[in-house]
Design a protein around this nucleic acid. Structure first.
Length: 544
RNA sequence: GGCCCGUUGGUCAAGAGGUUAAGACAUCACCCUUUCACGGUGGUAUCGUGGGUUCGAUUCCCGCACGGGUCACCA
């Protein structure tokens, strides 16, 4: 078989491979600097799992004074979604992932282009070379034939795929090949695998440690019938010529590592180091499973923006899952920039972690409790402008009033901060009673008759000018007069002597004024609302 | 099913051949309290299973079970 002639016939316009090594030379970086990448396919939104891997790659690159680049794997034109690249970039920017090079960032860089569709020449050159060397061949099998083969293998309990004796186009005669080409039959180019699955290879994974890999024997497709490479081939070419040093990717890729190993070997490229990151899991009924784009739209990064999660909180949570010693470090250094944490690949977990919303929420509360009222206002306003209701947008017209509300709600003036806010969405809803009259509340735990007594009695003695002490003394007085314990201690000693205690009375007042059982200091709230509004609300509550 | 990866409380997990088996979230109790929170103290709760190796194993080895991933002209 004249392989050179065949290569020329199949890919007449493909360039020679000479020159590419010079065109994309090894990077001139300091020792220890890592080149990492993010290589999403533009098939829609990006989710938490992507961010998870992204943060790891970002930390590794920038911590070592290396490079992080963005490559777009757009080889599958069927699944392409318009605007996906912009969306990916925006989402990642929101979470502080900055690329040094890549698509939409650095089009004229030495290692560009960053869209795989624009790199066709390189792929085709190497495919042609492989054919010329007899290490790749055209395959004319149709989809139906492959399907039938798979069925046959399944019923025979054989391993499915195109390999060994099942790879029938591998043994086509020269004559048959040319006849097929002349007949205009569509074809793909397959790798002629030399592997043997009996052979086990020891492989060092940067995250998983030493693992066993089975040698590949599948004649995988490297060039699709439309002339575009498959992921596997593009990965080998691109990560070689973009001079990636460390590939951190999801563990779903572990299964195709044997293919990549053989590809790098047959292309005579130096292998990058690999780290296969465990996937983020989700509880799904009885079982848990990998987060999936299709099944878990609520875990899209946009979801967190819509809910108004503070980006740093999400990042902190990701880091605690990513590096087991991060949480302890952060506890000791709550004020330090996240970048000062020394991220290490070998501290990354080996088993998939279940996504825990409670934990995220706890982190979110703590993060928001670090903000000043001004910062909080800016954060809430940004969210509201994009996702809030028209009514909520009006909260921001009187900034001075809002600042008072926020200072009180966050407890910025007291020594202990409140931690009521979890997300922007929830926070804006939480402070709504400062701007809108609360609806009839179902949070009451006291019967209507007693409520009326409490509220009416309170209204009689209430004076807006009273200071906090005086005000509360009156609350106690009211409580006592109606058979409630004015002092907590008295109540605890003899609970049976009372209808309840001050806390119950205060709760009724609180709900009447705010519609909520959980709010900051009531007196302060009344001060912010003003005399008229406070009375109006209590009177309304009495009539309920 | 083949191949690969994994298995410490409800969750995230540290850990090491001999420990009272860290810590965080959640949960419960109590304390503080001028109400709501914040905060503080303490409690409940974990080494999948069977064999080895060893004076001793949760830690090392083997089997099993269970969970996960993957087997495309998708990435």
């Amino acid at each position: 078989m004249n392989y050179k002639k065949l290569a020329e016939k199949l890919l007449p316009d493909a360039p020679s491979i000479s020159g590419f090594e010079e065109k994309y030379p090894p990077r001139n970086l300091a020792k220890g600097a890592e080149v990492t990448r993010l290589a999403p396919s533009p098939t829609g939104f990006i989710h938490l799992g992507n961010l998870f891997v992204a943060i790891a790659n970002e930390r590794i690159a920038h911590q070592s004074d290396g490079v992080l680049f963005l490559r777009i794997e757009d080889t599958d034109l069927k699944r392409k979604v318009e605007g996906a690249v912009e969306s990916v970039k925006n989402s990642l920017r929101y979470f502080g992932i900055k690329f040094d090079e890549g698509a939409e960032i650095d089009g004229n860089n030495t290692y560009a282009p960053w869209y795989q569709r624009q790199r066709a020449d390189i792929y085709r050159a190497y495919v042609k070379d492989l054919i010329a060397r007899g290490r790749a061949y055209p395959c004319f099998c149709t989809e139906d034939e492959l399907c039938a083969l798979r069925e046959q293998q399944t019923t025979e309990k054989k391993i499915t795929g195109y390999y060994g004796g099942y790879a029938k186009c591998r043994n086509l005669s020269e004559e048959e090949i040319y006849r097929n080409i002349e007949a205009g039959k569509p074809y793909v180019i397959r790798l002629k695998s030399m592997g043997n699955p009996e052979h086990k290879i020891k492989f060092h994974d940067e995250i998983k440690g030493d693992i066993t890999v089975t040698e590949n024997d599948q004649d995988v497709v490297i060039l699709k019938s439309d002339g575009i490479p498959t992921y596997h081939f593009a990965h080998a070419i691109d990560d070689h010529f973009m001079r990636t040093t460390l590939v951190i990717r999801g563990e779903e890729w572990l299964a195709s590592l044997p293919i990549h190993l053989e590809l790098f070997s047959v292309l005579d490229f130096e292998l990058p180091r690999y780290g296969h990151n465990c996937s983020l899991m989700k509880q799904d009924g009885e079982t848990r499973r990998k987060l999936s784009k299709r099944k878990d739209p609520e875990l899209s990064l946009d979801f967190y923006r819509k809910e108004g999660y503070y980006s740093r909180a999400v990042k902190v949570y990701m880091l605690t899952l990513l590096n087991s010693n991060f949480e302890e470090w952060y506890l000791k250094n709550p004020e330090k920039p996240l970048e000062e944490f020394k991220f290490s690949v070998n501290k990354m977990g080996k088993s998939g972690a279940l996504f825990d919303l409670d934990k995220l929420n706890d982190i979110a509360k703590n993060e928001l409790a670090k903000l000043s009222a001004e910062e909080m206002l800016a954060f809430l306003e940004e969210w509201t402008n994009e996702y809030g209701t028209d009514a909520q947008k009006t909260y921001f017209t009187n900034k001075e009033y809002l600042l008072n509300v926020l200072n009180l709600s966050m407890g910025t003036t007291s020594k202990k901060r409140r931690k009521d806010f979890t997300t922007a969405k929830q926070a804006v809803e939480l402070i709504s009673y400062f701007f809108e009259t609360p609806q009839r509340s179902d949070e009451y735990r006291t019967d209507a008759e007693t409520r009326k007594q409490i509220l009416s009695a309170f209204l009689v003695s209430y004076r807006f000018e009273d200071d906090a002490q005086t005000w509360f003394a009156k609350v106690k007085e009211t409580a006592g007069a109606l058979g409630f314990a004015a002092e907590m201690k008295d109540y605890k000693q003899n609970p049976e002597h009372y209808k309840g205690n001050v806390a119950d009375v205060a709760e009724v007042l609180r709900i009447a004024v705010t519609g909520k059982a959980n709010t900051p200091d009531l007196w302060s709230i009344m001060q912010i609302l003003g005399d008229t509004e406070t009375r109006k609300r209590i009177e309304r509550a009495i009539k309920e």
